[in-house]
């Protein structure tokens, strides 16, 4: 396993675009953390986003993982190009001739996906911990440790998404087209939702959508906006019901794991079947 990781790391470490994108990813994460902790002055009104309760434990785990997962597209580009470039440089063929098996090739990519996802999770964990201790109203250990399942969900979400990208890179062989396809697929899922909701009812539409690859990933960490203090109090005043299910459910986890497994196995099956 270490050998395979070494091989993949060796390929990535000299690639300028991979380096720039990874640094940009973690850089932007940091920037967001900084911006929200800065005090903005609008005339007499002083606004600090950090004071709006978004960094309260345990809500911060939910909020930050949800926010951070928007940036995964940066790493997705790295994943897509690291697979499809193996086709366009024809280095995949050379790797196999040099004695890498097709299975090892896919595994080396998958391990890298795990490392990226793991690294990002640890990064978000540490960042949230720091922000939380700086701004949270409650810092008791038992409160801090609550809702940590969102970090697990975040790791799984990234792994699944990157596995999808890996699969697309292998399937389409061109990074630009693979990313285009990813966007296309995202639109298709929403159209599916819309069509089913229109003809068979809203509930069925969302249920089906929750089983689709990108839908199930998104469903893993639901939007936290309606959970925030000021939204809840506003809704309370309007007597509106925002009874939204935020929890990470076991079946949501299972669906996403199944998709990840399918994507990795699918990449392997594709590669095995193909003549290079």
């Amino acid at each position: 396993m270490l050998r395979l990781l070494h091989i993949e790391f060796q390929k990535l470490r000299y690639s300028k675009s991979a380096k720039v994108l990874s640094i940009a990813y973690f850089g932007i994460l940091l920037c967001i953390a900084l911006i929200v902790s800065i005090e903005f002055n609008f005339g007499d009104i002083k606004v600090r986003i950090a004071d709006q309760g978004i960094f309260n434990f345990p809500f911060i785990w939910h909020g930050n993982t949800w926010l951070a997962s928007f940036l995964k597209i940066f790493l997705a580009v790295v994943i897509v190009s690291m697979t499809s470039n193996e086709y366009s440089n024809r280095t995949l063929k050379q790797n196999l001739i040099d004695g890498l098996s097709k299975k090892e090739f896919i595994l080396s990519k998958f391990y890298t996906v795990l490392v990226f996802a793991g690294f990002s999770t640890v990064f978000v964990f540490i960042m949230s911990l720091i922000l939380g201790y700086a701004f949270s109203d409650f810092t008791e250990f038992s409160v801090v440790m609550r809702d940590l399942e969102f970090l697990g969900a975040y790791f799984l979400k990234l792994t699944a998404f990157f596995s999808f990208c890996l699969f697309l890179g292998i399937l389409v062989k061109r990074s630009a087209f693979a990313l285009g396809f990813l966007f296309f697929w995202w639109v298709i899922e929403w159209i599916t939702l819309g069509v089913i909701a229109e003809f068979f009812g809203k509930d069925l539409g969302w249920s089906v959508w929750n089983f689709l690859p990108l839908g199930s990933m998104q469903n893993l960490i639901n939007q936290p906006v309606t959970r925030m203090n000021f939204v809840q109090s506003a809704a309370g005043q309007l007597n509106a019901d925002v009874g939204f299910d935020y929890a990470v459910h076991w079946y949501e986890v299972v669906i996403v794991i199944v998709w990840s497994a399918l994507f990795i196995y699918g990449s392997y099956a594709l590669l095995k079947k193909r003549d290079l």
Binding site: Q10, Y14, N89, Q94, N95, D98, L100
Partner: peptide, 25 residues
């Protein structure tokens, strides 16, 4: 070696060969 030489264009000769060494153990 087959048809035309396939290496990672952004790596130097030495880096490419180091990668091959890793693959070949």
């Amino acid at each position: 070696i087959i048809e035309r030489p396939n290496f990672y264009p952004y790596m130097t000769a030495k880096q490419n060969l180091a990668l091959v060494c890793k693959i070949k153990d």
